[in-house]
Design a binder for these strands. Structure first.
Length: 208
DNA sequence: CGACCGATCGTCT
DNA sequence: GACGATCGGTCGA
């Protein structure tokens, strides 16, 4: 397990980063309890030029401030008053790019994930969908700003290889308000992985 | 299967 | 005061 470093996050193309995050392992360690899962679904949010992004048109508020900071930080916000969505801030300071982690294949601490989610069995929904990812790993809005180069919350490469033909690119989920930008192929999934969220519809669209 | 609906609250207008 | 980068349940075909 090699933790991804600053140079991975501090790059100009957030779409490339979102694609490369597939197959990596997201780890949370709160008070000695470790849970982790392999990333099988991501979405790129391209900052000021992306209508789907919270930072579209340079919109800068207390909530989104962390996105304007340096790369490799967590951006966690509350959605629909219920779900905590976890993002990774990328690119340089003042360029508010982010990658949303949308689904994990559970790896470690599955019993803890079951406890956190209230689920009975580790089925395909355990960490599938951005709300469930945060729930399973115990990520909440107060964790926004955490440095992913430290040990509480980070992403690692465990040697798992992903080939281009294993990846599908599709439009992003739930961003209809973004007009034409809603059509951009900024969502990436591991083809055929049962933990990918959403219907079979988008999971069958290919680009790579 | 697909469509719809309620939950629930911080954030921004 | 309105509205989500969602989820899980229900209902009908």
């Amino acid at each position: 397990m090699i933790k991804l470093g600053y140079n991975f996050y501090n790059r100009a193309n957030v779409v490339t980063i979102a694609r490369e995050l597939l197959g990596k392992v997201l780890v949370s360690q709160w008070a000695g309890i470790t849970t982790s899962g392999r990333i099988v679904e991501t979405e790129a949010y391209y900052g000021a030029v992306d209508r789907a992004s919270h930072a579209w048109n340079g919109r800068r508020t207390a909530r989104t401030e962390i996105m304007f900071g340096d790369a490799g930080r967590a951006y966690v916000y509350l959605c629909y008053g219920i779900h905590h969505l976890f993002n990774i801030v990328t690119n340089a300071k003042d360029t508010p790019h982010a990658v949303l982690i949308r689904a994990l294949e559970p790896v470690a601490g599955i019993d803890t994930m079951l406890k956190r989610t209230g689920k009975k069995k580790p089925d395909r929904t355990l960490a599938s969908g951005p709300g469930n990812v945060s729930k399973a790993l115990g990520i909440i809005t107060k964790h926004t700003g955490i440095n992913l180069l430290e040990d509480m919350l980070f992403i690692a490469d465990d040697g798992f290889k992903v080939k281009n033909k294993d990846i599908l690119a599709t439009p992003r989920i739930g961003v209809d308000y973004a007009g034409e930008d809603a059509l951009l192929p900024y969502r990436f999934i591991l083809k055929g992985n049962i933990y990918v969220s959403g219907g079979k519809k988008w999971n069958a669209v290919s680009n790579l």
